[in-house]
């Protein structure tokens, strides 16, 4: 960035905490109200996008060190989802069965039930955050390219413009 966007940087840092809290609340209330792991992941990714846009890729990764592990996060999330879905195979049940069976007793924390679909949602959350962070990291590299490309303004006139 050639000019620091001070307001955007401050807002990015301030908004990070609340966006994580909103994401957690979406996962927690997602079984009795609107919400799921995907929406939570996108909310966190929006907070991260603000970091990337306001600070640039390298400064954002300095501010939030866990971003360097985004590919590993992504693969862990996917494997968690697949594991949760396919582990009933070990006991001969159909895949994607819930572990405390529908109707059986389940441990709860407040209104949140601790059962295997919760693990699936967490895996999905990690997957979405990881994928969108990798994407933001790749596209944030565009900054260096744009300067030496010196692309002239695109002329979309139907008769065809000319490059100056």
């Amino acid at each position: 960035m050639s000019r620091p966007y001070v307001v955007a940087q401050v807002v990015a840092r301030l908004l990070w905490g609340p966006s994580v809290v909103v994401a957690i609340s979406l996962i927690v209330k997602g079984y009795t109200d609107v919400g799921d792991g995907f929406a939570a992941g996108v909310v966190v990714a929006l907070g991260l996008a603000l970091f990337y846009v306001a600070l640039g890729a390298s400064a954002a990764e300095l501010a939030l060190p866990f971003l360097r592990y985004a590919p590993r996060l992504m693969i862990t999330g996917l494997l968690l989802c697949l594991g949760t879905g396919f582990f009933p195979l070990l006991s001969g049940e159909p895949i994607f069965s819930h572990l405390p069976e529908p109707g059986a007793h389940v441990a709860t924390v407040g209104s949140l039930e601790l059962f295997t679909p919760l693990l699936f949602d967490l895996g999905l959350f990690l997957l979405v955050v990881g994928v969108l962070t990798v994407l933001l990291h790749q596209l944030a590299g565009l900054k260096g390219v744009a300067e030496d490309l010196a692309v002239p303004p695109v002329d979309d006139a139907p008769t065809g413009g000319r490059r100056p």
Binding site: V131, L132, L135, Q138, L139, L142, V145, L149, V151, G160
Partner: peptide
């Protein structure tokens, strides 16, 4: 997901060919 892939593809195309105009 597909939009992300398309953007990455167009980015790569722009970098390699140094143009974003398809003519």
């Amino acid at each position: 997901a597909t939009l992300a892939l398309l953007l990455a593809l167009v980015h790569r195309l722009t970098v390699v060919l140094r143009t974003a105009r398809h003519d």
